[in-house]
């Protein structure tokens, strides 16, 4: 079999590239493989890989130019460089960003560390959600006495949240 790259030498190595569900196979001769490796190793940047990955994906909104209001970066520029311009780009590129994150990580939801100033907020929200769930269960079980107690606790928690006690939490 001849080399796919130069078409002259005998191919001795088969390379399989798998990106997502797309599989590509190539047969290369040792010389072309060496060249390819040098290219990959010499110029490999995450941006290049990412832009391949991003370019290979159908965009959610292909016709409109997506642009971040805050820093002016377009989605196209991001596809080329693999780098975002500012924190607001994430929201500006919306669904495209979500797909990108999902294709890289297999998930699109953060479960790790949270800044301390948000920790209180998160715990609070969890607590309220828990109580609401318990209240719904109580109502479903027709235990209205318990449901009323839970309702009052939820109300207490909610008013405490709105009370202007100065700090936003954290240290």
């Amino acid at each position: 079999m001849l080399c796919d790259e130069c078409g002259q030498n005998q191919a001795t190595i088969r390379i399989s590239t798998i990106i997502g569900e797309n599989k590509k196979e190539e047969n290369l001769c040792p010389q072309c493989l060496k060249k390819r490796n040098a290219q990959i190793l010499g110029g490999l940047k995450v941006g290049d890989l990412l832009s391949q990955l991003l370019g290979a994906q159908p965009q959610a909104e292909p016709k409109e130019t997506l642009r971040c209001d805050a820093c002016g970066q377009t989605y196209e520029e991001f596809q080329k460089s693999g780098r975002l311009g500012c924190a607001n780009c994430y929201a500006a590129f919306g669904d495209n960003m979500k797909k990108t994150l999902k294709s890289i990580h297999g998930h699109a939801h953060h479960v790790g560390k949270v800044p301390a100033y948000l920790e209180g907020e998160r715990l609070h929200r969890q607590q309220v959600d828990d109580l609401k769930r318990q209240m719904d269960q109580a109502v479903a079980a027709e235990d209205f006495e318990r449901a009323a107690v839970l309702r009052d606790r939820i109300r207490d928690l909610s008013t405490r949240e709105k009370a202007p006690d100065g700090k936003e939490g954290g240290a």
Binding site: V46, G47, L50, G82, R83, L84, A87, Y90, A91, M97, T100, L101, I104, H105, A108, H109, H110, G112, K113, V114, P115, A116, Y117, L118, R122, G170, A171
Partner: peptide, 28 residues
Amino acid sequence: DRQIERAERFAFDPDWGYLTACPTNTGT
């Protein structure tokens, strides 16, 4: 990290975590 965070606000999204220049680092 916590020490800097006491004085500063980092780019953070409740869904996506810490926001980074390259999406390969987003989250933690």
